[in-house]
């Protein structure tokens, strides 16, 4: 299967997840254990009404989805994955009104565990909004 149709299938799959759809997530890139997913600014996601900054929880949802997508795109071929743990470091508030984009990389897999790291950026590419590291289950075909 060529990269284009692979991307198309992965995109349809992830964008059909009810909560990803609720947040308006869009898959920009997904291949070889790496994924880029973004979501638009939405006033319903504001966590601090004084500043208009998006709630950390919405950034977590984006990061978790992006990490899971990176795991599913790993060449070893997981048939399913679930988050075991996820740590998010919030480096600065995302600028209100700007799109948030997460980049995740599944940098190591064992028989049953995938290790992932990710960053979240707004339109200022040089200063990350948040960073994440997580462990995910890596469920293989025919595995226990």
């Amino acid at each position: 299967m060529d990269t284009e149709s692979h991307l198309h299938i992965a995109r349809r799959f992830i964008e059909a997840i009810p909560h990803s759809k609720a947040l308006g997530m869009e898959v920009e890139e997904i291949a070889n254990g790496k994924a880029v997913i973004s979501m638009p600014f939405d006033p319903r996601l504001i966590g601090d009404p004084e500043t208009g900054v998006i709630h950390g929880g919405a950034v977590s949802a984006l990061m978790d989805t992006c990490c899971g997508a990176a795991v599913m795109s790993h060449p070893d071929g997981a048939i399913a994955t679930a988050t075991i743990d996820l740590r998010i470091d919030y480096m600065r508030p995302a600028t209100p009104g700007q799109r948030i984009r997460a980049r995740a990389e599944c940098y190591h897999v064992t028989r049953s565990v995938a290790f992932v790291r990710a960053t979240a950026l707004d339109e200022d590419d040089s200063r990350p909004v948040a960073a994440a590291t997580g462990a995910f289950t890596f469920q293989r075909q025919g595995g226990a």
């Binding site: 909560h19 709630h55 929880g57 949802a61 989805t65 996820l86």
Partner: peptide, 17 residues
């Protein structure tokens, strides 16, 4: 709030949030 329609399970991001 669902993240995995196959099980179905609540989205990990929703749980975190």
């Amino acid at each position: 709030l669902i993240g995995n329609p196959a099980i179905p399970a609540i989205h990990g991001g929703v749980t975190a949030a």
